[in-house]
């Protein structure tokens, strides 16, 4: 049997060069720093490592971090799609302003966002005083902060897809007798699903790593409102570098597995739905 050809014939030259460069670049920029976490962690004994990462306070922080990030990403998918829909479908005065505002959470220093949100949602704050339940210094507050910083991802992923959406496909659906809801669910949703999933993954990943905006609104009560990144910071401040990297390593592995799973889901929806 002939040698298996894994390199497809291509009219574009430079496959070797570009692949080599990509590998080097990703290694230097992403892999190497991340590897340091594991190298650092490796200096701990297995027992120490296990004790550090399964400490009840740490486990509670994992639950909070992943739970709040997941909730925030879910909220962002729903309202991100809605905002993208409105921005693409309708024209109204101030549309450009709103379009610009969407990106603001990216530009704003996250600490500023955190302080602003805390002021608003504190029990005496503008919004907080009207709410019967506590928002600031609870997981709800954390979720709000994470939703805030993840908002642009879904909007910016879904917007171009909606923009390129073929108007005639919708008309075809209507002519065939489908109601608006049916057209939305059966024709439009499958079309935007891959983009919405990508937006979800990005918002989720961003929320997992978020630190600046959350520490202000979280209140950082151990076992209750302490997120994992904060615990890592705390350990660093106590010069417990090994403990910090151990928790970081666990978080990294879980994040990687989750993102890999979402990527797989994306690949699957792409194959199933995006036949262009």
């Amino acid at each position: 049997m002939a040698k298996k050809k894994w390199k497809k014939h291509s009219i574009l030259p430079g496959f070797g060069l570009s692949l080599g460069f990509t590998t080097l670049y990703v290694s230097l920029l992403v892999l190497l720093p991340l590897a340091m976490i594991f190298v650092n962690t490796a200096s701990m004994s297995w027992a120490d490592f296990w004790a550090t990462v399964t400490e009840p306070r740490v486990v509670a922080s994992y639950k909070l971090s992943f739970g709040a990030a997941f909730a925030a990403a879910c909220i962002n998918v729903v309202f991100g799609v809605l905002i993208a829909w409105v921005l693409v479908r309708y024209s109204f005065p101030g549309k450009r302003v709103i379009d610009g505002l969407v990106d603001l959470p990216f530009a704003l220093p996250t600490a500023v966002a955190g302080i602003a949100l805390t002021t608003l949602y504190a029990e005496t704050g503008w919004v907080g005083q009207f709410l019967s339940f506590k928002v600031a210094f609870t997981p709800i507050g954390i979720t709000i902060a994470l939703t805030f910083i993840g908002l642009p991802f879904v909007v910016r992923m879904v917007q171009p897809v909606l923009q390129n959406f073929d108007q005639e496909t919708k008309e075809a659906s209507a002519i065939l007798g489908a109601s608006r809801l049916q057209t939305f669910v059966k024709v439009i949703v499958p079309e935007i699903l891959p983009a919405a999933l990508t937006g979800f993954a990005l918002a989720f990943a961003r929320a997992l790593g978020e630190y600046g905006s959350v520490v202000f609104i979280a209140g950082n009560m151990p076992m209750k409102t302490e997120i994992t990144p904060l615990l890592i910071m705390t350990k660093l401040e106590q010069y417990d570098y090994e403990g910090a990297t151990a928790i970081a390593a666990v978080m990294l592995v879980i994040s990687f597995v989750l993102l890999l799973f979402i990527n797989g889901l994306q690949w699957w929806t792409n194959r199933k739905f995006a036949h262009s």
């Binding site: 073929d166 005639e168 496909t169 075809a172 002519i175 109601s179």
Partner: peptide, 18 residues
Amino acid sequence: TTERKVGFVFQHYALFKH
């Protein structure tokens, strides 16, 4: 449109890609 019970064929097919 939904209730007119017409068949419509578009120039660019407008099939449901997925």
